[in-house]
């Protein structure tokens, strides 16, 4: 059987393979009619009416979360969807979240959309939703995504970006985080090192086909 996984090389995932492997959850207190279209197009999609299982979201179980801003997450945060997104950004910065909502007019809501990886208006066509999901999933299954996420969280650390990118790539392709940990340990705060290594470990697991 053909294998996507070769040692020292990031595997290339065709979109059909990505769709099979990826797990998507839609969190919306209203109906999501596009669920049936996504399912018939071969996506693994769950629909929650509320944030039913926060630890599952924190664990990175889902490759992509489509998150509504209003009417969800009230048990966990007064800021509803926005509060959930802020929390996820802290505990699992590699999580991909597409913010979608009807209420996108007031600038006070913009932080929610700015914090997300992409935004969608509920009134958009299915093809727009599908394109946005495909784009994010393709990114999720690329090495550059993880390298750039590490770069983002360490931006304030004044670390040499080119060297950091190289160290991350080497770490992923060699399935070994020790050298990267040493490299980061020279200049970066211990907690941040742990978050960065966590991101790289997700990439290693993905490239190893786990």
């Amino acid at each position: 059987m053909f294998s996507f996984f070769n040692k020292n090389k990031w595997p290339i995932f065709p979109l059909d393979e990505i769709k099979k492997r990826a797990r998507i959850v839609v969190i919306d207190d209203n109906e999501f009619p596009y669920a049936k279209l996504f399912k018939s197009d071969g996506y693994n999609l769950d629909k929650w009416k509320d944030v039913d299982d926060l630890p599952k979201l924190e664990s990175g179980y889902y490759d992509l979360i489509l998150l509504d801003m209003h009417g969800v997450g009230l048990k966990q945060s007064a800021e509803q969807g926005h509060g959930i997104l802020k929390h996820l950004r802290k505990v699992c910065p590699a999580q991909i979240v597409i913010a979608y909502s009807n209420a996108d007019w007031s600038l006070k809501f913009q932080e929610f959309f700015d914090l997300a990886d992409n935004k969608l208006d509920k009134r958009q066509d299915y093809v727009d939703f599908k394109r946005a999901v495909d784009d994010q999933l393709k990114a999720r299954f690329s090495m550059g995504f993880y390298v750039s996420r590490v770069g983002n969280i360490l931006r304030a650390s004044n670390i040499d970006e080119a060297k950091l990118a190289k160290a991350c790539e080497k770490s992923i392709l060699s399935n070994d985080t020790n050298k990267l940990r040493q490299f980061l340990g020279q200049t970066v705060d211990g907690d941040l090192v742990q978050v960065a290594i966590g991101i790289i470990q997700i990439a290693i697991a993905l490239s190893a086909g786990k």
Binding site: L37, K122, Q124
Partner: peptide, 10 residues
Amino acid sequence: NSAIAQNINV
């Protein structure tokens, strides 16, 4: 309108 838009798309 979003309910109309999504359902007619489906």
